[in-house]
Amino acid sequence: MSNMNLYSRGDKLFVIVNMVLIAIFMLSTLYPFIYIASLSLSTGFEARAGNVVLTPVGFTLEAYKQVLSEPQFWTSYKNTFIYTIFGTLMSLAFIIPGAYALSRPQLYGRRFWNLTVAFTMWFNAGLIPFFLNMRDLGLLDSYFGIIIGFAVNGFNIILLRNFFEAIPQSFEEAARMDGANEFQVLWKVYMPLSKPAIATVALFCIVSRWNGFFWAMVLLQDEDKIPLQVYLRHVIVELSDDEEFANSLLTSAYSFETVSAAIIVCSIIPILLIYPFLQKYFSKGILLGGVKE
């Protein structure tokens, strides 16, 4: 629609009202982040008194000093990196070959295998049987349990399979002539052609790993193994009810509120750093993932 040049006066008003409404929506999306960032940079006294509205009041980095001097913060940060990196690599190791095999027309029982994958998207056994299964497999309280237990996801397989299926067979003919086997065709022909789709799947994995908290909370008891999100929950959600603790933390320099805000800022930063990539690939990804049968 951008190629139109003729506007009536009514159109101009329409465009302006529209921009104002979008601006309002934009600002209400941004405001909570600005508020938290300002809170984290304010003094505990001002934060407690409710004087922080838009910008930091009595600028101080004391809350960040508190957060960064806590060993458990670093332990859980490190753990999140471990779960995110190895979890994503593990997922790709399963998903790429699996999706490729499912995309091949000569695969025997292809409909059945596809249904086996798709069914897990519509029906799952639920929290309790999944938990008991992890326990029976001896995967409680283990790095490996978290990494392997969430490696495969039906949606990601189908997304990649759809992408592989859309690649014309003619691309692989030259490789086939040279006597390439399936692994070589996947590696040399399909993977280079599917970089955007693989990047999308990898980013889906990274975000869900980085943000995942529920199963980590349920499956991990050992504080040395918990990821950042579980630590965050412990500090922000559980301790927020504890008035006595909040008061004990209150000094003129920092308070429970400013420390919470500082932890929130520290854990958002990595997501913001990869956000340009996320935005580029995610919107394509969700549209690619349509289940075709």
Partner: peptide, 27 residues
């Protein structure tokens, strides 16, 4: 800007909600 919150974890969102609605210091 409006796509951003989708990528933020539920724990952080909950933390923002709890902080913003807190009786003592919340905005």
């Amino acid at each position: 800007i409006v796509y951003l919150p989708h990528f933020i974890s539920s724990v952080i969102i909950a933390g923002i909600v709890i902080t913003s609605f807190s009786p003592s210091a919340g905005i």
